[in-house]
Computed example of a mutant assay.
Amino acid sequence: MYIVPEREIGALMTRTSAFDAVEKVFAAMASGEAYNFPVIREAIGHEDALYGFKGGFDRAGLSLGLKAGGYWPNNLAKHGEINHQSTVFLFDPDTGKVAAMVGGNLLTALRTAAASSVSIAHLARKDAKVMGMVGAGHQATFQLRAALEQRDFTKVIGWNYHPEMLPNIEKVANEAGLPFEAVPLDGMREADVIVSITSAFAPSLMAAHVSPGTHLACMGTDTKGKQEVDAALLAVATVFTDEIAQSVSIGEAQHAIAQNLMTEADIHQIGAVINGTHPGRKSADEITLFDGTGVGLQDLAVAAAVVDLAIEKGIAIKVDV
């Protein structure tokens, strides 16, 4: 078995590599070559933590395994550790033997950002100029860096529940040579692309805040009850997702479906656009929305790529089990 520690991930996995890995696995999911296992996610009754498992099997990439981890909200304050903690385990699909254990914290941030950037690459208008961010926490910085690589943006605008956090994304915008403006939520009407990345249980971005032709990547809703955007927004958008089953159960679509504003049949896999079996955006005025719920296959794809690189560079630690 190979071990790739968390400390090595930053030198191995680039945003481009994460994008390629996630794009390929989305395509494999849409073609039926890859599937996710049911998600287990539990409140463990200790430290207010949520803990769970996401796994799957990709026949195309021959990736089999799971990510174990969750959210410990007191970590940063109590222990100086980030609140999201995870580890990816890969298994040999031919024998079932454990093949690798990979630090999953940075990988989770990179694969989540890669998912939204894949949606921008395939669904945003080619002439998109203004990038909007709803959310300014740790993950938002990863989201913004990845998103800015997908179009020739000229400006970044942002809103956050806690305005004092907006300098996090302003710094990223400035590093990219772009001006940044803090706006109220109705100021998001200026945006051509919007990424929402919050942990909210009530919507902040409403349908009236979004202009025709906008592409949205909603990346924060991954649990029953969570909600970032108005359910009515999904009703007027063409909705895409990583996995339909998760979109309707733990993603943004759970609320629109509960309110009878849409049905499961109204949701499309982003992989179908990648494969060319769905046309994607059909007009300049169409609102497109990607409901990024986060699937185990994303984690396996980026972890497998990291293991290959770590072995090639002599960084991977080999142990007998």
Rank of each mutant, 00 (worst) to 15 (best):
A173W: 12
V88F: 13
G135A: 03
E175G: 00
L178F: 10
I169C: 03
F153G: 02
A147F: 12
R145M: 03
P167V: 00
T108G: 10
N168M: 01
N105Y: 11
R145N: 12
S116W: 13
G103M: 04
G177A: 08
F89W: 02
F89M: 00
S86H: 14
G132Y: 14
R111M: 09
D152K: 15
R145A: 04
V130S: 04
A99C: 09
R145F: 08
S116G: 15
G96L: 14
V118D: 08
G158I: 02
Q143L: 01
V98D: 02
T112Y: 07
K97S: 10
F91L: 13
R151A: 04
V172Q: 03
H162I: 03
A121P: 00
P179Q: 03
H162Y: 12
G137V: 01
E175N: 01
A176Y: 13
M133L: 13
I120A: 05
P167F: 06
G137F: 08
A124E: 03
G104Y: 14
E149L: 13
P93Q: 14
A146H: 06
A136T: 01
A115N: 07
K129L: 05
A113F: 10
I157W: 12
L123H: 12
D92M: 07
G135H: 11
A147I: 11
L90I: 05
V88K: 13
T112A: 04
A140K: 05
E175R: 01
